[in-house]
């Protein structure tokens, strides 16, 4: 893939010309910057203990609270900005675990082949069929719902698709000439994996990581929404859980429901778009669609009058 697409610089050049990918990248970078700058951007301190009166609960948006207040009278905008930190942290760490496991299993299975591959892929198939979210719910419910546990559970359950993808790519890379040659001159497995196979699997792994991040963020928000979030941190899912279970619906407090969801959609959409853009940049494909032709076929045609070959200049 590297040779065919002109290396990583070529990928970056094509990504820069890919509007979908660039929109996604910009959105993701924005989210990261907001998360990093949360303490400076937030109008209030999220941990400040304040006396709350009944009047503060679900206060509508106002100059003091741009996005209103939540069920405990806290500023929604502040929670929203800090929530970005939790979601992104879970997304990055959990997907790191998932991609590491999936990548390692996929590489090993694809490269070693034989019985190892059979066993690993069978295991992957089983894990692929067992529904993730209910299993995650069960595990988190049985353990202490903490941020670490959530990251671990999402990471340890989310590697299956990566493993399959990486295995397929490894299988195809393994047949390349230079890999066969390296093996013929007696290079060790570990060396071939690191020097020859991994660099060619990496681009695909990057695309996949971006998508795994978005899934991890969705999963975290779902677990938190279902009441399995870390009570000590306020993620977007957690905010939605509080709003939903503590009367935001009946109070008509849309300001407590819209922003956290918007945040999740923003980050997930960013990853999805970036993933699509990266994929197009890695696999530039001509449109060879046979039904697309009719729209453009016989443009610009002029008929010359003379059907015979020229006889100019015969001597």
């Amino acid at each position: 893939m590297e040779q065919a697409t002109g290396g990583y610089r070529g990928v970056w050049r094509r990504l820069r010309r890919n509007p979908i990918g660039m929109i996604g990248l910009t959105m993701l970078v924005t989210a990261i910057v907001v998360a990093l700058l949360a303490p400076w951007l937030s109008p209030y301190d999220p941990n400040a203990v304040s006396r709350v009166t009944i009047m503060d609960v679900y206060q509508p948006p106002s100059p003091e609270h741009w996005l209103g207040a939540d069920d405990a009278g806290r500023d929604v905008l502040t929670n929203f900005l800090y929530g970005a930190r939790v979601s992104l942290t879970v997304g990055f760490f959990a997907s790191f675990i998932a991609v590491a496991i999936g990548g390692l299993l996929g590489l090993t299975a694809g490269f070693l082949g034989g019985r190892t591959e059979g066993v690993l892929m069978r295991f992957t198939d089983i894990m692929l069929v067992i529904p993730d979210l209910p299993l995650a719910v069960v595990i988190v419910a049985l353990t202490k719902p903490s941020l670490t546990n959530i990251i671990l559970v999402i990471g340890l359950l989310g590697w299956t698709s990566t493993a399959r993808l990486v295995r397929a790519q490894t299988l195809s890379v393994k047949q390349r000439k230079f890999v066969l040659r390296a093996r013929a001159i007696g290079a060790g497995n570990r060396y071939i994996m690191r020097r020859h196979i991994f660099p060619l699997v990496l681009p695909l792994l990057v695309v996949n990581t971006v998508l795994v991040i978005s899934l991890a963020i969705l999963n975290e928000s779902t677990l938190s929404f279902l009441g399995l979030g870390d009570p000590a941190t306020l993620s977007w899912g957690q905010m939605l859980n509080y709003a939903f279970t503590r009367g935001a619906m009946s109070a008509g407090a849309w300001w407590a429901l819209i922003p956290p969801g918007f945040g999740i959609v923003w980050v997930v959409l960013a990853c999805t778009l970036l993933g699509q853009g990266l994929e197009q940049a890695l696999n530039p494909r001509l449109l060879t669609h046979h039904l697309a032709a009719d729209r453009t076929l016989t443009a610009l045609r002029r008929l010359p009058p003379d059907p015979a070959p020229s006889s100019e200049g015969i001597t």
Binding site: T296, L297, L300, R301
Partner: peptide, 12 residues
């Protein structure tokens, strides 16, 4: 039956 990128620009 030319593909989408193909254009007959002249002839008969």
């Amino acid at each position: 039956l030319l593909p989408a990128a193909g254009r007959i620009v002249a002839g008969s």
